[in-house]
Design a protein around this nucleic acid. Structure first.
Length: 280
DNA sequence: CATAGCTCCTGACCGC
DNA sequence: TGCGGTCAGGAGCTAT
């Protein structure tokens, strides 16, 4: 499932090759979550200037306009160069040809999207990007911001992390991992987090994301780096996908609960639902 | 407004 | 071996 580290790993793999490239062809496959918004041929002739990222969105800045990519839960952006063309798949739903090689959006489940936007401040792109919260790895982000954003919220902290409005980038894997590192139960009300809880959660989220970035992302299911290589963060998760296995901190078997039709993995000893009141 | 539930889609997996 | 059923999940949309 592509989350922030997977998108960033993809961006880092694509940027050196694509920045400065000229688009020579574009084609669509089956419909994705949103329509591209322009006929693909309109992209021909434009130059790719810069690749950036916002949350889980990859933004390709063109000399005129932008391409906004989202990988959904099974998408991967793959590079191909002359000499070693990509083996085509029935799941290639957007293909860009450039004078420096091809870019393919391969997405079996088609929850992903690529949309063209003339102006990121307007229309669909603005609406989508407008919901993306603070960048977790932005050094300027403070725990106070999280506590303020979550104040009064009855929804679970797990759901609040997933919706990404306070802080973006975490999907199911990294939300579970960050909560475990922070010692916070996934079912706690977001509004119940103290400032020190928010500090711990931000620390846990950052540590998780940094380790995942170093591992090239997690390659559960279909995610691949731009080169087609698999990431290997899934080999070092502490709780995600480990129901019944001992917690690496205390040895208690890891539990799984379902929240909002999504699995949450946690250690009931390390992640208490209620704080234990200790006498001085 | 806040929140819960529904929905899109298909590969992987399981039991018979 | 084949088949049907179930699950997973990002995030927009809709209903409450």
């Amino acid at each position: 499932m592509p989350e922030l580290p997977e998108v960033e790993t993809t961006r880092l793999g694509l940027a050196p090759r694509l920045e400065g490239a000229r688009i020579t062809g574009a084609a669509l496959g089956k419909p994705l979550r949103f329509a591209l918004g322009v006929p693909p041929r309109d992209l021909v002739g434009r130059r790719i200037e810069l690749l950036t990222r916002r949350g889980k969105y990859l933004i390709v800045e063109l000399d005129q306009g932008f391409l906004l990519f989202h990988l959904g839960m099974s998408g991967a952006l793959l590079l191909s160069c002359q000499g070693e063309a990509l083996v085509p798949s029935a799941h290639d739903h957007f293909v860009l040809q450039t004078d420096r090689g091809g870019l393919t959006l391969r997405d079996p489940r088609r929850f992903g999207a690529v949309i063209f936007s003339a102006d990121l401040q307007q229309g669909l792109a603005a609406r989508l990007l407008g919901k993306v919260g603070a960048e977790p790895l932005d050094a300027a982000l403070r725990a106070e911001h999280l506590q303020r954003a979550w104040a009064g919220k009855s929804q679970s902290i797990k759901a609040a992390l997933l919706c990404g409005q306070a802080v973006c980038g975490a999907g199911n894997i990294y939300a579970c991992e960050a909560l475990h590192r922070a010692g916070i139960h996934p079912a706690r009300a977001a509004g119940s987090l103290s400032l020190s809880d928010c500090h711990a959660l931000l620390r846990g989220l950052r540590a998780t994301l940094r380790r995942a970035l170093a591992a090239g992302g997690a390659s559960l299911r279909n995610y691949r780096q731009a080169s087609g290589q698999a990431g290997h963060f899934q080999l070092q998760t502490r709780v995600y996908g480990r129901e019944g296995e001992p917690c690496g901190v205390c040895g208690t078997p890891i539990r799984r609960i379902v929240q909002g039709a999504r699995s949450s993995f946690f250690c009931q000893r390390c992640q208490k639902l209620r704080r234990v009141l200790r006498r001085a």
